[in-house]
Amino acid sequence: MRIVIHGFGRIGRVILRQILSLPEHASIEVVAVNDLAAPETCAYLFKYDSVFGPLPGGVAFADGHLIAGGRSVPLLTGVKMADLPLDGVDLVLDCTGATTNRDSIDATLNAGARTVLISGPSDIADITIVCGANDDQIGAARVVSNASCTTNALAPLLRDLDARYGLIQGHMTTIHCYTGSQPMVDAPRGPDLARNRAGAVSMVPTTTSAAKLIDRVLPHLAGRVTGAAVRVPAISVSAVDLVVRLRTPPQDAANALRALADANPVIGLVEDPCVSVDLRMRPESLVIAPTETLETGDQIRIFGWYDNEWGFSARMLDVARMMHTRAD
């Protein structure tokens, strides 16, 4: 599979790190990486990462190429998506978080790319796909959204709960680490006033797109799940705190969750009393902590962790493979 990474921020860099470091991705050829930042800066930020540590083996930038993991990848600056080297490219991973115009996507397809995968919620994609939730519906879509990290954590769990026990309703709170959308010091960033406050100092109540995206990914559950978020002063790993009402609740919810995780490859388990840093670089979309389960009548509280960068990037590569191997 030949890919181009368009946007070399947090997700773009983690995707390339996984391609270079995990043997299951050895067959992926990265034709080019493109970003707005100076290539020397991109190479430095890829070499030294405040969350995942320095890249083993080091990184160099020479003659317009990023050199790492025994590979040499052209590193481009400020190229429009449709002007990227797209000859024979199977997939463009749009990791900019800024593509809102379908015209630029169509121009990219017309220029030679077979497909485009967008690393976030998108209203211009043909379909929104979440592994373990609705990936059987990917069909021949050429422009796919990978939803959000929180939607990837929540949707597979909701699908399986509803299939096994019947979901009446639920409410999810994501306890989410701060991100680049928040300032380091109080500063105007947008209409959500609380998110104008320093992200590494306070817990910040805010919104999440996950509930809206659940309606899109699992339309048969539309209107049954609400969601909210609290951004917290942690640099990585987030959590889902979900309360659901079920039509036929299991007799032992904690063991039911263990069985559910065993049956779904994107859901993991952690039995030890862990804190968020212990879940760093877990590849699952959600890692359930069954010992945190609480039951009251038909109401069950479920708690799970997710590495919002590493796990989400792993799903990007999973969906990329689906788009490449499906029958067109």
Results as ranks from 00 to 15, higher is better:
V130M: 11
G132D: 05
G132Q: 03
A133K: 01
A133F: 02
A133R: 00
N134L: 01
D135A: 10
D135M: 09
D136R: 09
D136V: 02
Q137H: 13
Q137W: 08
Q137M: 11
Q137N: 07
Q137E: 15
Q137S: 11
I138C: 07
I138A: 02
I138V: 04
A140C: 07
A140P: 11
A140Y: 10
A141E: 04
A141G: 08
A141C: 09
R142A: 14
R142E: 08
V144A: 13
V144Q: 00
V144F: 10
S145C: 03
S145F: 08
N146M: 13
N146E: 11
N146D: 10
A147N: 00
A147L: 12
A147V: 10
S148T: 14
S148I: 11
S148R: 02
C149K: 15
C149V: 12
C149D: 13
C149S: 15
C149N: 11
T150S: 14
T151G: 08
N152S: 12
A153D: 04
A153P: 02
L154D: 07
A155M: 02
P156H: 02
P156V: 05
L157I: 01
L158V: 00
R159F: 04
R159K: 14
D160F: 06
D160L: 13
D162T: 03
D162I: 01
D162A: 04
A163N: 01
R164E: 07
R164K: 10
R164F: 03
R164Q: 07
R164D: 03
Y165F: 08
Q169A: 05
G170Q: 01
H171S: 12
H171Q: 06
H171I: 04
M172R: 09
M172H: 10
T173Y: 02
T174W: 05
T174G: 13
T174N: 12
I175L: 15
H176I: 11
H176V: 14
C177W: 09
Y178M: 09
Y178K: 02
Y178A: 00
G180D: 10
S181C: 12
S181I: 14
Q182S: 07
P183F: 05
P183G: 13
P183T: 08
P183A: 05
M184D: 09
V185L: 06
D186V: 11
A187P: 01
P188L: 09
P188M: 09
R189A: 07
G190Q: 01
G190M: 01
P191R: 15
D192W: 13
L193D: 04
R195T: 11
R195Y: 04
R195D: 15
R197C: 03
A198D: 00
A198L: 04
A198E: 04
A200R: 10
A200P: 06
S202N: 07
V204K: 09
P205V: 04
T206F: 05
T206L: 02
T207N: 11
T207Q: 13
T207Y: 13
T207S: 05
T207K: 10
T208W: 03
T208C: 01
S209R: 13
S209D: 11
S209H: 12
A210P: 04
A210Y: 06
A210W: 03
A211W: 09
K212M: 14
K212W: 12
K212L: 06
L213R: 08
L213A: 10
I214V: 10
I214G: 01
R216M: 01
R216W: 06
V217R: 00
V217M: 08
L218R: 06
